[in-house]
Design a protein around this nucleic acid. Structure first.
Lengths: 354, 354
DNA sequence: GTTGGCACTCCACTCTAGTGAGTGCTGGCC
DNA sequence: GGCCAGCACTCACTAGAGTGGAGTGCCAAC
C-alpha cells in the first residue's frame, strides 16, 4: 500500500525525522538491554534507564508507537519487545556512536601492535584473531590491494628438470611467484639472460599492466624463456584481482546463534572468500559502515550484521576490516574496536610499505 | 581393576581375537546403519543384514554380548544400540576397509586434478575444499615441509626508505620473504654486493641450517647488510617449523552435531593451526590412520574421529591429509577419498617439485 | 543354539492445567 | 493532552499425568 505509506511519510513527523527524545531513550534502552541479554525486553526493564522517567504504562504506550513505526517488534503478543533492523539502524546512526574501547581492550591492542612482527600476511592473520577476541565477533581482514604496486624486481630461478620459478617483488613488499615450464634443459646463463630482459621489460610498471614480450635478444631459446616469463606475469596480474582474506574467530558464530542451521549457512558463506571480499566491497561502496540484517542482500546472513572499516595508509585505501556478528551484536564496541585496530593497522602498513 | 581386565584378556577369546562371524556381521550392520541414520539401532533393523540370518531374539542376545564386551552401548534401557569407540575401532580395523569411491566422486577428483593450476598453496587450499565436498567432513591439508629443501636463490630487494626484502627461493619452489631494516639510505650497489655475499654463504644448504655470517667484504656497510640478511634467514628457518595448514569445509561440523556447544569447541580447535598440525603429526606418529573419540587425547574432539593420510612424493613424506567428522562418520568413504586424493596430490607435488 | 512369546522398560509425545511476565485499555488526575 | 495506577487478558513456558510404541531381557520349547 504505497499510498498509505507516502501519506505517513509526508505528514507524520516521527517516521522520518528524529524520534521524540523519550522514545529515542526507550529505543536505546531496549537495544542495549537486548544486546546484553538476548531476551525480549519488557516495559518494566526500561523505566530506570536514563532519559526515561515515566511509568511502565507510559513506556508501554511509547513502545506500541515504536512498534507501529517499525523500530520494535514482538515475538508474540504478551512478550517483550525486540529491535527490528530499522531499530538497530536508528540506534547505530543516532544513538550508539563508536563508544570507547575499555582499558583492557586498549591494552590488548597496544600490546599486539608492539609485539607484531613478521610479514604482512602473518600480521593480518593475527589481526583477525585480535579483533575476534576484542569483539566476540567473527573478524574479516582484507589485505591491501597490490593492483597499483609497481614491480620492483623480477627474477627467474631454475628449479631443475625443465622447471623455473618467476619471482616478482612489488614495491609494497608483496612477493608473487609462478612456475613456468622450460622447453628443454636450459643452462643458468640463458635463464639469467632471460630474467634480465624480463626485468628490463616490466620493472617500474604495475603487475596488471604487463603487456607484450621483452625485446628480442637474438637467441631463440632466451626469447622463448622471456616470453614464457612475461606470460606468467600476465597471469599473475590477473590473479591479483582477488585480494587476500583472513578470517578469524569463526567459532564465535556458533556461540552467537542457537540454531545450528543458521551457524552452518553463515559458515558456508565465510568459506567463500570471493563472496566475502565482494560483500565487504559492496557495503563500503554504498557508503555504509554498518550493514544490518537484509541491508547487504546476502540472504543467509539475514540475521547478521556487518561492521566495515576501511584501512587507509596516508589517505589511500589499503585494506578492509569487517566484523560479523548477530544483528544484536555490540555495535559500539565493534565500531570502536574496528576503528582503533584499523587505525593502528594503517599506521603499521604505512611504516612497512613506504 | 587391572586384574579382572587381565584375566578377561588372557582367558576369554572374544575380547582380543576376532569376534565370532555373526557377531562381527551384527556389529557391522549396527555401525553402518547408525552412520546413516544417527539413530540407535534395534535388533529388528539388523536381521536382514548380510551374514545375519537369525531371528531378532538371537540378535538381541548377541547384541547383549557385544555390549558386555564393550563394542556397543545403549543410551538407555529399552533403546537400540549405538557403537562405542571400541566398536568403531573394530569396524575400521576388521570390517570396513577403504571401500571404493563412487563414480561421481572419482569423476570429481579426476576433473579437479585435470583443472588444478596455479601454485602449490592455492592447490592445497582447493584440495581441502574438494575433500570436504567428497566426504562431507571438514578437511585439513598440511603442506609439504620445507625443512630439508636447500636454498636455491637469495636476493635482496630494496623497497626504499631504509627497508629491504630478503627473498629466498627453495629448491622445491617455495618462496620465503622477510623484511629487514637498513641502517641508513643504502645504494643499490651495496645491496647487490651484500646479496651476492649472502647468496655465496647459504646457497645449497637447507634454510634451517644457516649459521654464522657471510665472509667480510672489507666494506662495513655491506657487511652490516649481509649480517642483517643472514639474521633474517635464520629467523625464517625457525619459523619454517610450523607447516602451512589449509582447512576446508569447517561448516560441515555444524551439520554433524546438533549441540551448538560441541560445534563451537570443535571450531575453536580448528582455529589453532599449531594444535591441528601437531595433532595430525601425533596421530601419524602413533602409527594410526584413524583416531576415534578419545584416542587422540584432545578433549574437545572427544565426539569426533580423524582420518589421517600421509601424502608422499617418491616415498618421502611431503604433507598430510586429515578428515575430521563425528565418530559416526562414514569411514569407508573417508578412507577412500583420503587415499585417492592423497595419491593424486602426491603425484602432482612430485611433478612440480622435482 | 535358536526361536517365538511375553512381560517389562522407558523415551517421546500429547494433553492439561498452572504460572508469570508482559501487554493493551480505561478512567481519573494534573 | 500527557501521564499513570489498575485491571483484564494473552500466551510462552513448565510440570505432571497419561499413552503409544520401539525396544529389551528372559524363558520355555523346539
Amino acid at each position: 500500500m504505497p499510498t498509505t505509506d507516502d501519506h505517513k511519510t509526508e505528514h507524520l513527523v516521527p517516521d522520518e525525522a528524529d524520534l521524540d527524545a523519550r522514545k529515542a531513550a526507550i529505543l536505546n534502552a531496549v537495544v542495549t538491554e537486548y544486546i546484553g541479554s538476548a531476551q525480549p525486553v519488557g516495559s518494566q526493564h526500561v523505566v530506570d534507564a536514563p532519559g526515561v522517567s515515566v511509568s511502565s504504562a507510559t513506556v508501554r504506550s511509547d513502545m506500541a508507537a515504536l512498534e507501529r513505526d517499525g523500530y520494535l517488534t514482538q515475538p508474540h503478543t504478551s512478550a517483550g519487545r525486540i529491535p527490528t533492523d530499522k531499530g538497530y539502524r536508528f540506534f547505530v546512526d543516532q544513538l550508539g556512536g563508536p563508544g570507547p574501547l575499555d582499558a583492557g581492550g586498549r591494552q590488548q591492542v597496544r600490546q599486539f601492535f608492539d609485539h607484531a612482527h613478521g610479514e604482512i600476511e602473518e600480521m593480518l592473520e593475527h589481526t583477525s584473531g585480535l579483533l575476534a577476541d576484542l569483539t566476540d565477533c567473527t573478524a574479516m581482514v582484507v589485505g591491501p590491494s597490490h593492483e597499483s604496486a609497481v614491480v620492483r624486481s623480477v627474477q627467474l630461478v631454475g628449479l631443475g628438470h625443465r622447471l623455473a620459478l618467476v619471482v616478482v617483488v612489488l614495491a609494497d613488499g608483496a612477493v608473487r611467484k609462478q612456475s613456468i615450464e622450460l622447453a628443454e634443459d636450459t643452462d643458468d646463463a640463458a635463464l639469467a639472460e632471460a630474467g634480465g630482459r624480463l626485468a628490463a621489460h616490466v620493472l617500474g610498471s604495475p603487475l596488471a599492466q604487463v603487456v607484450g614480450t621483452p625485446a628480442p635478444s637474438g637467441t631463440a631459446s632466451v626469447d622463448a624463456i622471456a616470453a614464457a616469463g612475461a606470460a606468467a606475469l600476465r597471469s599473475l596480474g590477473e590473479a591479483d584481482g582477488h585480494d587476500q582474506l583472513f578470517v578469524g574467530g569463526s567459532s564465535r558464530m556458533a556461540a552467537a546463534f542457537d540454531a545450528v542451521d543458521t551457524v552452518r549457512s553463515v559458515l558456508t558463506i565465510l568459506e567463500q572468500q570471493l563472496v566475502v571480499v565482494s560483500l565487504l566491497r559492496d557495503i563500503l561502496d554504498t557508503g555504509l559502515t554498518v550493514a544490518i540484517g537484509a541491508e547487504h542482500g546476502v540472504e543467509p546472513l539475514a540475521s547478521c550484521a556487518i561492521v566495515v572499516m576501511p584501512v587507509s595508509v596516508g589517505g589511500v585505501e589499503a585494506g578492509t576490516i569487517g566484523l560479523l556478528g548477530p544483528t544484536r551484536m555490540n555495535y559500539p564496541l565493534a565500531l570502536a574496536a574496528a576503528r582503533v585496530v584499523g587505525d593502528r593497522l594503517g599506521e603499521r602498513l604505512g611504516e612497512a610499505a613506504r
